[in-house]
Simulated scan of single mutants.
Amino acid sequence: MRTHERVLASIEADLAAGRWGLGERLPAERALADELGVSRSSVREAIRVLEAMGIVRTAVGSGPDAGATVVDRPAAGLGAAVRLHVASGTLAVRDVVETRVLLETWAVREAAGRAAPSPAADATDATGVAGGGEVTGFTEARAGALAEARALLDRMDSPDLSAGAFRELDASFHLVLVRLAGNVLVEAVMTGLRGAIESYVAAGSAGLASWERTAERLRVEHRAVLDAVTAGDGALAERLVREHIEGFYRETGL
């Protein structure tokens, strides 16, 4: 094991043990180097790896914000890794599509199946403390995500929208759908895949006979998926999003 890998292993163990939490700073390079018996360059290399993985954020200087701070960006490193593997040809577009179908079909079915809280959940308990705060927060977040999804679709209806802007809104819409499922890790994986998805969608769009005709079909399909999720029809939402993703893949001949 190389020296910087030993530093990474030590920091990982300390994170797992709760030595540092989100928003807290790691010790200075010199302090970590002395503690671990390694060179400052090895510590610096390990910190660079952690920053690329989205585990820490670094800032130069000597103020309170200087050094490496623990952050929560699980999709950062994943997205970069996926994009590079797709670009190098080691990760086939078909694999990206299949992974996307796997995640999004689960997500829309889960999102559709999340029932609204019962009136009893919001009732005040015997101690006089309202018991529905957490549930109410969830329903408010869900309503906000649904409203965001509808707003994205409304923006995609603009006749002056370029193909690139449409694709960007399209990607954002699908991320909102996944967010509705409430699984942070699945959302992080999808966020990490976004760059790779946008790359193959852009490549496929360039070869279409009529982008305008395809875009109109995608608009209709987006609305249908969102309607199914909103109505709580998980089976329909799952089928529609599968047909939507795989249909575009087949149409472009990728």
Rank of each mutant, 00 (worst) to 15 (best):
G195A: 04
S88C: 06
G128Y: 01
A235F: 09
T230H: 12
V189F: 14
S118N: 07
D170V: 08
R25N: 06
R44H: 13
T105I: 02
V176M: 14
D170G: 05
A202E: 15
R40P: 03
A147W: 11
L78S: 04
R48P: 05
F173D: 00
I47A: 09
V101D: 03
G63R: 10
V225E: 01
R19P: 01
S10T: 02
H174D: 12
V108M: 00
D125W: 01
R239I: 02
E148M: 12
G182W: 07
V186A: 14
V189E: 11
E246T: 15
E24W: 10
V7E: 06
A228L: 12
G204E: 09
G37N: 10
D72I: 01
D157T: 04
S62P: 02
R179N: 05
E238W: 13
V129R: 15
A112E: 00
D125E: 04
A130M: 08
W106G: 08
S158F: 07
A31Y: 06
G61K: 09
A147D: 12
L240Q: 13
A115F: 04
R30M: 11
M156G: 10
G207P: 00
V43H: 08
L102K: 01
V108L: 05
L153H: 11
D157F: 03
E29C: 10
A81M: 13
A202M: 06
G37Y: 14
R142D: 02
V184H: 13
V129A: 11
E134Q: 13
F173C: 06
E45F: 09
A141I: 00
F173S: 08
L236H: 11
G234K: 01
A116D: 11
M53G: 07
S199P: 01
G182N: 02
R217E: 11
